[in-house]
Write a protein that binds this DNA or RNA. Structure first.
Lengths: 72, 72
DNA sequence: CCACATTTGTCCGTATGTATC
DNA sequence: AGATACATACGGACAAATGTG
């Protein structure tokens, strides 16, 4: 069971980008469609990742605008 | 944001059942299919609820067995 | 104010893999 | 070998909010 699901890989990757400073509070993430292509996965995987990241208070999504890194 | 999505209603409801003592650590939750009928929603809503509850460490899912309330 | 495109949020159905019984 | 049940994944649909013209 050492396999890592796609949605968790995305979650971890975005968390890492924030930890590395490649993403800072207020930054906008790529659109869902862009992330699908970037990671080569379906909308569901990206959606699940966003669901967890939002639930953990790491990002904030706004309809019609995008997903943004939540400020501290 | 006065509306509450189905998956969050399920999350809150199960949390409430735990808080009320109607569900105690080790208890098995109804199957996904049963929860779908119980709440009148699709598998996706139930599965999203399980995704969040697992991520929050409230429940534990085991393939072939079921979903169980995690011990404190 | 209205129409339109963009983007996220939610939801539905289904298929496949894997673990348990 | 088969049934049960969760985990992951794919695809598509509609609503709501935003921005632009």
């Amino acid at each position: 069971m050492t396999i890592t699901p796609n949605y968790r890989r995305i979650v971890d990757d975005i968390k890492q980008q924030i930890a590395d400073g490649r993403l800072t509070p207020g930054d906008q993430l790529p659109t869902v469609a862009a992330l699908c292509k970037q990671y080569g996965v379906s909308t569901t995987a990206v959606r699940n990742a966003m669901l967890l990241l939002r639930d953990q208070g790491i990002v904030e999504g706004h309809q019609g605008k995008g997903v943004f890194v939540k400020g501290a």
